[in-house]
Computed example of a mutant assay.
Amino acid sequence: MIFSCGQNFSDSGTSEIGHDGENFEELLDIPLTEQPPPPPPPKNISANEISRKLIKSGRLELESKNFQKDRQVILDYLGKFGGYVEQENENNSEFRKTLFLTIRIPSNSFDSMFILSTAVGRKVINRSVNVEDATLRYLDLEASIESSKALENRYREILKQANSIKDILEIEKSLNSIRAEIDLYESRFRNLSSKISYSSLEIILSENVTVAENPDLGYLNKLINSFGYGWKGLGQFLLGIVSIWPFILVAGLIGFLIRRRIKKK
């Protein structure tokens, strides 16, 4: 329908379109998804010419001897391969320290980074690697962007030949819809391309914290400490008495009055 309309516009001129907008109405009544753009030039691409688009991700859980030292070793490797830290969290408890690192590495360096990281720390607790083939998704998005842009260009050509306000408004409305669709496709394509170009690796470093026990102080030290505790207890007792002096004063006064009354009888 688009091709036939475009041919009519070029043959009859703009004056005919201005007098009769039926061709535009017929075009715009068809949903955008059912209006194919001009076919792209034929491409003879063999299966060997299509490079696979792979998304690699991994997870490493390591037990560490020296928490900060092992962290620095990983960051040094990361800088060597041109990667970066996407997220870092540290969790410390009384008996254990844990570091959560999410890093992004160029895909061609993922395997080397993963192997080197397994040698960090005292031992590997858990490790896993996942590879997702995103070739079809990549090609589908690429084709959708190309097709939508071709349709957008076709509408722009038609818009240049439109004279009536109604036709112009309808075509511009369709162009806005197509542009929104293109923006969505391109956003998804950028996100997918980023995942393909930079692999993700989650590294968990954990270190056990040893609680030092108090050594036996010996009898003499215990005796000295006992004197200290006794003196401290006496001080607390005196402070307690001082804090209740009003009650003692009232009790003494009541006792004095009672004894005086008894003597009078």
Rank of each mutant, 00 (worst) to 15 (best):
E26R: 11
P36H: 14
T118D: 04
Q7V: 02
E86I: 08
I125C: 01
P38E: 11
I45Q: 05
N92H: 12
V120M: 06
D70A: 12
N108T: 11
N48E: 15
L60P: 02
G79H: 10
T135V: 01
P39E: 15
P39V: 11
M113V: 03
P40R: 06
N89G: 07
G13L: 13
Q87C: 04
D133M: 01
L27Y: 01
Q72N: 08
R104E: 06
G79V: 03
D20I: 07
K56T: 03
K43F: 06
P31A: 09
E22K: 12
P37C: 04
N23C: 14
G82W: 00
S64K: 00
S112D: 15
N130I: 04
Q35G: 03
D70V: 08
S93V: 10
F110S: 01
I17W: 05
S128G: 09
H19G: 07
A143Q: 15
D20L: 05
Q72L: 14
E88G: 06
N108D: 15
N89Y: 07
N44Y: 12
P38L: 12
D133W: 05
L62H: 00
G6L: 10
A47L: 08
S112V: 10
E34I: 03
R59Y: 12
Q7H: 11
G82C: 07
V131F: 06
F95T: 13
P31F: 02
L78H: 02
L27I: 09
F9S: 05
E142Y: 10
K65P: 00
D133C: 00
P41T: 14
S109Q: 15
E16C: 06
L27D: 01
Q87L: 14
H19I: 14
L141V: 09
K56H: 01
R52P: 09
Q35P: 00
T33Q: 14
N108W: 11
L62Q: 00
A143T: 14
Q7T: 13
S64Y: 01
E146D: 13
I50E: 04
Y77K: 04
E16W: 13
A134M: 09
P39C: 12
E132A: 02
G6I: 09
L101N: 02
E94G: 01
V120G: 07
M113L: 14
L54P: 03
N126G: 03
N89Q: 13
S12C: 02
